[in-house]
Design a binder for these strands. Structure first.
Lengths: 123, 123
DNA sequence: TCATTGTTTTACCAAATAGCAAAATAACCT
DNA sequence: AGGTTATTTTGCTATTTGGTAAAACAATGA
């Protein structure tokens, strides 16, 4: 189901181990062993995490003697950032007057949790 | 395991249905029914997606007559954007000379796919 | 050729996720 | 009270995910 690139990227990022690996890769290439070192996980588990990152296009693996150095590929991160950035004005509180007004009327004249003004109020 | 906020946020975002809901909510509050309308999903499924968004703090639900209007909460998005933004210089190609050089030497004097320079090369 | 190092693959398991249909709730409107 | 509308909860599947241990592979070095 979750075949689209953006979902793939975001779910790859939704794990602390994998994010830590990407942080490490900011410094440059690293082998699987180097990436595994900080974690108390079996190599197969590490290998699986790397496969998730690879499937999302977030890393690239080469072959060098017996090692498989991993390199960061930032493109999917840009895509993710682009999506989130469309909300930037919201969290920066930069709604202009119109937007704020639209939010208001969308919410209807208040009365949270209780009855709205009755329209068919016969008496 | 995945208890940290950022992981929660990213995995909530890693689904096209939930992202579409957030896009809709950019326009303002919407009831569960309104949010469900574009999708060919049962109400329970919709309800679950909303619960995921709520648990991640991405939406807030109020009660208004029989409806439960949802509102966007952008804070978790900011946190996610902050994490990703640390890689912005990478995808914008703004590695300065030093960083590029560090990447180079980290990768060792080339020789991909074949043997490295032997250190114990006796002759 | 054989041992070593680095990494992946192969079962296998437990827990989480995503979906459904049907029943249960909740608040409103007679 | 009874009916309607909006939404959630309750079982119940099927699939995915994250982990393990043990075996398999691949390249190097002796």
């Amino acid at each position: 189901m979750t075949t689209d690139t953006l979902s793939l990227t975001l779910s790859a990022l939704a794990d602390p181990t994998r994010r830590a690996m990407l942080v490490r890769l900011r410094e440059g290439q690293a082998t699987v062993g180097q990436l595994a070192e900080p974690f108390d996980l079996s190599m197969p588990a590490i290998s699986k995490h790397l496969k998730v990152l690879e499937r999302a296009g977030l890393i690239e693996r080469s072959v060098k003697a017996q090692t498989r150095p991993c390199t960061l590929r930032p493109e999917p991160l840009r895509e993710a950032a682009d999506w989130i950035d469309r909300y930037r004005d919201l969290w920066e509180g930069r709604l202009d007057r119109l937007d704020a007004y639209l939010q208001e009327i969308q919410a209807e004249p208040a009365n949270e949790t209780q009855s709205r003004t009755p329209k068919g109020d016969s008496e």
